[in-house]
Design a binder for these strands. Sequence first.
DNA 1: GTAACGCTTGAATACCTATTCAAAAAGGAT
DNA 2: ATCCTTTTTGAATAGGTATTCAAGCGTTAC
Lengths: 342, 342
Amino acid sequence: MKRTRSHITSRDVALLAGVSQASVSRAFTPGSSLSDDKRERVLKAAQQLNYIPNSIASSLTTARTNTIAVIIGDTDNPFYVHVLRAFMATLQARGRQTLTFAVQPGSSSDDAIQQVLRYRVDGIILTAAELSSRVVTLCHDRGIPIVLFNRYIPGRKVPVVRCDNIGGGQAMADALLKAGARTFAVIKGDPMGTTSQDRVRGFNDRLFEEGLRRDAVYEIEGGSTYNGAFEAVLAAYGTTKRALPDAIFAVNDIMAMAAIDVLRHKRELAVPGDVMVAGFDNIPEGARASYDLTTLDQPVAQMVEEAVAMLEKSLAADDLDAFAEERIVPSEMVWRGTILRD
Amino acid sequence: MKRTRSHITSRDVALLAGVSQASVSRAFTPGSSLSDDKRERVLKAAQQLNYIPNSIASSLTTARTNTIAVIIGDTDNPFYVHVLRAFMATLQARGRQTLTFAVQPGSSSDDAIQQVLRYRVDGIILTAAELSSRVVTLCHDRGIPIVLFNRYIPGRKVPVVRCDNIGGGQAMADALLKAGARTFAVIKGDPMGTTSQDRVRGFNDRLFEEGLRRDAVYEIEGGSTYNGAFEAVLAAYGTTKRALPDAIFAVNDIMAMAAIDVLRHKRELAVPGDVMVAGFDNIPEGARASYDLTTLDQPVAQMVEEAVAMLEKSLAADDLDAFAEERIVPSEMVWRGTILRD
DNA sequence: GTAACGCTTGAATACCTATTCAAAAAGGAT
DNA sequence: ATCCTTTTTGAATAGGTATTCAAGCGTTAC
């Protein structure tokens, strides 16, 4: 069958139902004034013609696309995959479409935003990706709300939902000290990311507060990925050259899992017997029996829920500035088997 | 700042540049006839006004959105998450937007398709989700190409890219027989999914061909998820009640990993020493040292590439029917540590 | 010098729906 | 039956861009 050039439009339906095009539009717009029998006639005609309303045309007049862009930077980290899934589910449940956009880790999301603005999305969620203050202004001037997830722009007031990363780092430092650790390694993530920076800072600061010497903490660049962390930990502790720390704190679970794999399978060491390991995020993968990872929980469902709520509040309001809130959610210790407990 | 009601349009740019609106449109349409100096003038004016072309309006006239819908059913299976990521990257690289849609596992994707058709996507990719023959007709009549990924509709000619699941199942049966296994368990996935069905069929048929008795294979419903398989395997082999098989074949890696975790951590058994385990898909997670899973590789990158190519071929053509091809990619054994080898 | 041709350009129009405005119909009260 | 209020309805229009059509212009060939 040849591709039909002209689709069925509301006018065709109107013709068949013997009403005006306006009435067809009203039949598909909840809350608009139309008599019941006419609505019924229209819907029957629509069904008969297999009519599907054209959102493109509709968006042109309403200046709303009912679409939210979700921009994600780090699809290598399962945590952000879970976040993306949660956003998709939440937005879908609220009757919105999701325009997903992945940007290369490290590169800026400016181009992506530019792209996305062409599509006149109603709002933007940005997780784990760089962005410049410039594009924030760009969106702001256009009245398009943008909510940051687990990322913020220092020195600028932008709506954001994030976890208390500094507090989490501190809590983990306390937990490991209490477990008897005195020498440490920290596996850092994206060097430019505020998330990793804050977790490391909270962790280190607390240790130094407690009187540890600066060389009690060995810092490792894990690059936020399993493979990156695996190689880095292997380079650091793959041989007996460097003395093992009492505990390793990775700023995310996936890197903690890499560390465990190196210690157990490349060095035949026991975790937590020889070295304790802790992560951050509480991804389901870390909870599995093979890892049983002690970590800090980020309440993803709640955070996503709040981010969407924040976006919708901006959507409903005329004044974007009124809602530049910052929601900081605490993270909670999840005790499992990779840290010793008395 | 208040939300600006009216955006900058091509007309505004035209006014500033001293040209017609048509010329502005041409300046942003590659391959259209416009003198260099005029194009330059337009682009300068556009930049000055922060003009971003409106894809909505453009789509209305061209009847193209440059957007592809990716519908995914099983986001619990990491394999399909990798598939989704690959699609997003591939489509993005070709300058297309991705409208992602997740449907509840088990429920049909008909509603999702209906939704997606409103947005006049140019094409649809469907992975790991049910769909009725009816909506295929619906899309077909509208001239919207739809490519199935790792799923097919028995008895209907629809463009599809999938792995040779039957052949893979057979290959795994051969491998396990050669490794000395004589009693088996099979962990099945989605009962309605052709993928799981075919893998089980290929596996069983080959075993029975080789003369095994039907009760040499114990079948387990794993539900396609880690948790589902974990519980099912625990129920079957968590105690010493039931005799252990020589080998367990899970129709996907994530369930194989669950099986390994049960055997190792709930029963203190050795894999592959006491029981061999094999999966299907070759997800990166299974390659990690903690699992080191022997499996069958699905060449995701290649399959995704081909699916998109198939879609674009349909997009370019007028006649949809000419391209209802079926591309079946072979899967290859990946020998790792969970099957004994001589 | 004229004819023929190709490239540029702008005016006008189509794309499809939501909404406004005014008219018509229906309902209610007296 | 009359007037007033409320609801329903259709005609007309806006929304922003791509494209068509015809005109304008400059070039080349003879």
